[in-house]
Design a protein around this nucleic acid. Structure first.
Length: 559
RNA sequence: UGGGGCGUAGUAUAAUGGCAGUACACCUGGUUUUGGUCCAGGCAGUUGGGGUUCGAAUCCCUGCGCCCCAGCCA
C-alpha cells in the first residue's frame, strides 16, 4: 500500500486518537461488549462485538464481556451460554474479564442509598400508569410527583423496606429527582429501581428490587474503569442521564459514544421478532441456517473470519443505513474462495452411461483440491461407466449460449474425459431418465491432444462410488427488502426459503466430512449439518452459491 | 409540535478549506479444465437556497428530508 492510500479511520478511532494525544485516559483504551442475555446474538451484535473488541485490540487495550442482566423476567442462562459460545467462536478473547451486572447489585444499591442521602432520589408511590400520565409528552412538561418532597429519612426507610420485600411489584419505585419539565423525557425523574419479585438466573431470590438500565449501565462501566462506552444511536438521548448519575455520585466517568447499528435488507434484526420466529416454529430454532443469528450463520456454513471481515468492511458512522445482504454473502465467498477444499456433488442427479467405456472398470483420476491454494494438494476420484451429472446440465433442445450437454454435443467432465451425448432415454411419461454417451479415451484428465476445445465443463460423480446425501439450498427468509415495513413481517416470510434435494450424490471423499465449509464445484459452498445428519443420514447446507453469470443471463433474457 | 441525531453515485463509506476517492451492485471485454476465481475498462455522487473565501462536501445563515425519545425494557 502506498502512503497516499491510508486506511480510513472511523470517528470513534479519531476520538481515541484525540484522547491519547491529550492523555485523557492515561492512554488506556478499555471497552466492553454488554449484551442482555434475553436472546441469541445476531449479525448486528457481531458488528458491535467486532467494533468493541477490535478497537481495543488495535489500540493495545482491553475489552470486557459483560452481561447486562438487570431484568430477571426476560433473561435466562441458556442465553448466557449461547452468547459466550458465539463471541468465542467469532474469535474474541476477554481473558479473565467475564462480568455480570448482577455481580454489582450490592454496589449499585449502596450508590442508590448515597443518592437518597444526598437528597437526589426519592421513593414514589405512583403506579406505572400514573407515572406515565404525569410525565407530560413531547411538547408539554410533566408534573412533579406528590412524593417528591419526602424527607431523606423517610426515603431511606422506604427504600430499605423496598429492598427487604415489604412491598408488592409496582407498589413503589425509586426515582431520581431531576426536572419534570426537562425537554429530554429521560430526565423527567426517571425510575432508578423497580420492585420485581422474580428469581434471577444468577442471584436467585436475593433481590426483589432491580436497577433500571440507565442507573445500572453507567455504574457497570464506571466500576470496570471503561474508557469508551460504545453503544447504539437510540441511547444518545440517554447520555445526559448516564452523565448525570455518574456526576452526582462523583465516581469514575467513562465517555459514552453512539454509533449506528447494522441493518440488513431482507432481514429482521429485532431479538423480540427473531424469538417470535423461533417460538412460533416458523424456523427450526435460533440456529436455523436461515436465521441472521450467529448460531444460524455458523450452522449455515459461515466462517468467523468472513463475519469479521464483513464487520470491518462496514465502517462505523452515525448514519442510519441498510446494508445489502449481498455484501455479507460476498464476504463469505471471498473468504471461502481462498480456503475451501473443492469437491464434487450432484444435487439433482441424472444418470449417464458411457457406452464405450469398459463395464466394471474403475480408474482413479487426479483432482486439484484448491486452485487458489497449491498447498491444498491433490486427491484421486473414481471414474466408471455409470455416472451422475446435474439435471440442469442437460437440455434436449438447448439454446445457442447453453454450453453444457445436449444431444450430439461434447463437453468435458471435470478432471476426466470429454463425452458426447449420443442418446436420450426417457420413461413412459417422457421424463429423461438416462443419457447414453461416448467418451474420448485420449482426453483423459480433461484436455484433448488434438487441441480441440469444448465450452462446457461439468461436475460429476461415479455412480457405484457415490455417497448419498440430502442437500438443502437456502434462500432469503423474507420476500421483501424491508420485511417489517408494514409491521407484518410474518406475512413476508419466503415460503421457498429452504429447498431440499433428498437424492443427492457426492464424491466418496465426502463420506466423512470434516467440520468445515467445502466448495461443491459449480454449486456453491456447503457444510455438513451436524444437527440433521443423524442415523447414518448425511445432510449438507448450502452456505452461499457461487456467482452465477449463466443464471444472470437467463434473468436478463427473461427466464 | 419539545429534545436528540443524521444527510456524499443504486447501496455503503473516504476526503474536515485545495484534483470528490474506494468497495459492493450494474454494464463491456480478456484469461480460465468451476458460466467460479482473476485481470482490464465503463456507468454513476456532495439535500435546496443564500453567504464567507482566490478556492466550500467541509465554515456561516436559512430551508427541506430522514431516524430516535412519552417502559417500573435494554
Amino acid at each position: 500500500m502506498n502512503d497516499t492510500q491510508k486506511e480510513p479511520v472511523n470517528f470513534i478511532q479519531k476520538i481515541i486518537d484525540d484522547d491519547n494525544a491529550s492523555g485523557k485516559w492515561d492512554n488506556r483504551v478499555h471497552t466492553r461488549f454488554p449484551p442482555e442475555p434475553n436472546g441469541y446474538l445476531h449479525i448486528g451484535h457481531a458488528k458491535s462485538i467486532c467494533l468493541n473488541f477490535g478497537i481495543a485490540e488495535k489500540n493495545g487495550g482491553k475489552c470486557n464481556l459483560r452481561f447486562d442482566d438487570t431484568n430477571p423476567v426476560k433473561e435466562e442462562d441458556e442465553y448466557v451460554q449461547s452468547i459466550i459460545k458465539d463471541v468465542k467462536w467469532l474469535g474474541f478473547d476477554w481473558e479473565d474479564r467475564l462480568f455480570y451486572a448482577s455481580d454489582y447489585f450490592d454496589q449499585m444499591y449502596e450508590f442508590a442509598i448515597q443518592l437518597v442521602q444526598d437528597g437526589k432520589a426519592y421513593v414514589c408511590d405512583l403506579s406505572g400508569d400514573e407515572i406515565r400520565n404525569t410525565r407530560g409528552n413531547l411538547t408539554e412538561p410533566g408534573k412533579e410527583s406528590p412524593h417528591i418532597n419526602r424527607s431523606i429519612e423517610e426515603n431511606l426507610d422506604l427504600f430499605v423496606r423496598m429492598k427487604n420485600g415489604e412491598f408488592a411489584n409496582g407498589e413503589k419505585v425509586l426515582r431520581a429527582k431531576i426536572d419534570m419539565s426537562h425537554p429530554n423525557l429521560n430526565m423527567r425523574d426517571p425510575v432508578i429501581y423497580r420492585i420485581l419479585h422474580a428469581s434471577h438466573h444468577r442471584t436467585g431470590d436475593k433481590w426483589c428490587i432491580y436497577p433500571m438500565y440507565d442507573w445500572a449501565h453507567g455504574l457497570e462501566d464506571s466500576i470496570e474503569k471503561i474508557t469508551h462506552s460504545i453503544c447504539t444511536l437510540e441511547f444518545e438521548d440517554h447520555r445526559p442521564l448516564y452523565d448525570w448519575y455518574l456526576e452526582q455520585l462523583g465516581v469514575y466517568h467513562p465517555q459514552q459514544i453512539e454509533f449506528a447499528r447494522l441493518n440488513l435488507n431482507f432481514t429482521i434484526m429485532s431479538k423480540r421478532k427473531l424469538k417470535q420466529l423461533v417460538d412460533e416454529n416458523h424456523v427450526d430454532g435460533w440456529d436455523d441456517p436461515r436465521m441472521p443469528s450467529i448460531s444460524g450463520l455458523r450452522r449455515r456454513g459461515y466462517t468467523p473470519e468472513s463475519i469479521r471481515n464483513f464487520a470491518e468492511d462496514l465502517g462505523v458512522t452515525k448514519r442510519d443505513s441498510i446494508i445489502d445482504v449481498i455484501r455479507l454473502e460476498n464476504a463469505l465467498r471471498e473468504d471461502l474462495n481462498k480456503r475451501a477444499p473443492r469437491v464434487m456433488g450432484v444435487l439433482d442427479p441424472l444418470k449417464v452411461v458411457i457406452t464405450n467405456y469398459p463395464e466394471g472398470k474403475t480408474e482413479m483420476l487426479e483432482a486439484i483440491n484448491n486452485p487458489e491454494d497449491n498447498s491444498a494438494g491433490k486427491r484421486d476420484i473414481p471414474f466408471s461407466q455409470e455416472l451422475y451429472i446435474e439435471q440442469s446440465d442437460f437440455m434436449e433442445d438447448p439454446p445457442k449460449k447453453f454450453f453444457r450437454l445436449g444431444p450430439g454435443r461434447e463437453v468435458r467432465l471435470r478432471y476426466a474425459y470429454f463425452i458426447t451425448c449420443q442418446e436420450v432415454i426417457k420413461d413412459e411419461n417422457g421424463n429423461i431418465v438416462e443419457l447414453q454417451c461416448t467418451y474420448d479415451p485420449k482426453t483423459r484428465g480433461g484436455s484433448a491432444p488434438d487441441g480441440r476445445k469444448v465450452k462446457g465443463t461439468l461436475h460429476w460423480v461415479s455412480s457405484p462410488h457415490a455417497v448419498d446425501a440430502e442437500i438443502r439450498l437456502y434462500d432469503r427468509l423474507f420476500l421483501n427488502e424491508n420485511p417489517d415495513e408494514d409491521g407484518e413481517f410474518l406475512k413476508n416470510l419466503n415460503p421457498d426459503s429452504c429447498k431440499t434435494f433428498s437424492n443427492s450424490k457426492c464424491e466418496p471423499s465426502l463420506a466423512n466430512p470434516e467440520n468445515l465449509t467445502y466448495q461443491f464445484e459449480r454449486n456453491g459452498y456447503f457444510i455438513k449439518d451436524e444437527k440433521e445428519s443423524i442415523n447414518g443420514k448425511l445432510v449438507f447446507n448450502r452456505a452461499v452459491s457461487l456467482r452465477d453469470s449463466w443464471k444472470k443471463f437467463l434473468k436478463q433474457v427473461g427466464k
